[in-house]
Amino acid sequence: MLPLLLLKTAQKHPVLVELKNGETYNGHMVQCDSWMNVHLREVICTSKDGDRFWRIPETYIRGNTIKYLRVPDEVIDKVKEETYKRDEKRPNVFNRGRGMRGRGGGRGEGRGQMDGGGRGEGGRGSGGRGNRGRGQHQQL
């Protein structure tokens, strides 16, 4: 699971952000992007030593100033749920693509090898061009 996907799912949830300078920001995540820039609403900012507080209606934090974020536990379940749903929506496209590729490669190689020992030319013939050529040489 990707950290940025988790953050995206944490939108509308309360989060805590600690910056590299030690300040922490508690608020509701409005939005975040692929640079980890985060937009918070209804924020409480706490100074590094933890003894001063500020209420701020809205903040935008540049991603590279962040040390870490804390997100609610349920967010990870939400991510799993959403990825599951997404995979379920179009499983055919995904599976067909992989299946075709897998089978194509498998058939060429498999037949060539197996039939080489066992059944002779017929099998080798359908194994693909490379195999057929080699097969005939062996037979001669």
Partner: peptide, 12 residues
Amino acid sequence: VLGGLHVVRGDN
């Protein structure tokens, strides 16, 4: 116990 889920930035 820090609890919960943390996203720690790679920089750090």
